[in-house]
């Protein structure tokens, strides 16, 4: 993620929740809660934003949460403090994770890879910091298999990327390309909104 991405999300931070994120959080709350309920071991949470997702985390976990934007993290800090466990916030690019190899058991993302400017590089970084047999669990907007929806996503992305995400990312394919073994993909809305469960293969 480049410095221009950082600037974009810093600018978006003041209106991020009221404009888009809060409604989406409420709409998909049950699915996110279910996804995060499997948290165990050392957990990395990518693109924490303003911390809206923290409410869905099961209590008592120790989680490292990163975001590229200091303005987003500033808003996330009070929510991290309210969490009944430990959330350590760090400013970091997904494409340049400053963690040692194989240092996490699980990596979670929530509407992250529609915003990362170099998704494949980001996914390769996740693979690096995950331990072998570690899991990547994602809640993401992706392209759809159905033409009318896909066409609309492609048509709207030039507008949406100006103030936020790209809506036409082939994230499942990228996860495979980054060397993960995709275990399960669940569709939640029009083959656009998906839960992706992937595993880092154990080297032979």
């Amino acid at each position: 993620m480049s410095s221009s991405d950082r600037g974009k999300w810093n600018r978006a931070a003041p209106r991020y929740e009221s404009f888009a994120a809060r409604a989406a959080e409420q709409r998909w709350a049950r699915y996110k809660r279910k996804l995060f309920s499997g948290m165990q071991g050392k957990v990395l949470f990518l693109a924490a934003g303003t911390g809206l997702d923290f409410q869905f985390f099961p209590p008592g976990k120790t989680i490292v949460a990163i975001d590229v934007s200091e303005q987003m993290l500033r808003r996330a800090a009070p929510r991290a403090r309210r969490y009944r466990g430990a959330i350590h916030l760090q400013q970091m690019n997904v494409g340049q994770l400053a963690f040692q190899d194989a240092s996490f058991d699980q990596v979670y993302t929530s509407c992250t890879f529609c915003s990362v400017s170099e998704p494949l590089e980001g996914l390769r970084q996740i693979r690096r910091v995950l331990r072998p047999d570690g899991t990547l669990l994602m809640f993401e907007h992706t392209v759809s298999r159905w033409f009318p929806f896909n066409a609309m996503l492609h048509a709207c992305t030039p507008l949406s990327r100006r103030f936020g995400p790209e809506m036409n990312r082939p994230t499942v394919r990228s996860v495979r390309q980054a060397g993960f073994e995709v275990r399960r993909v669940e569709r939640h809305y029009l083959d656009v909104l998906k839960t992706i469960k992937a595993r880092k293969p154990v080297p032979r």
Partner: peptide, 12 residues
């Protein structure tokens, strides 16, 4: 509609 229903869903 975004602030009430989410971003991508009402867009489509």
């Amino acid at each position: 509609a975004g602030p009430l229903l989410g971003m991508i869903e009402p867009m489509l």
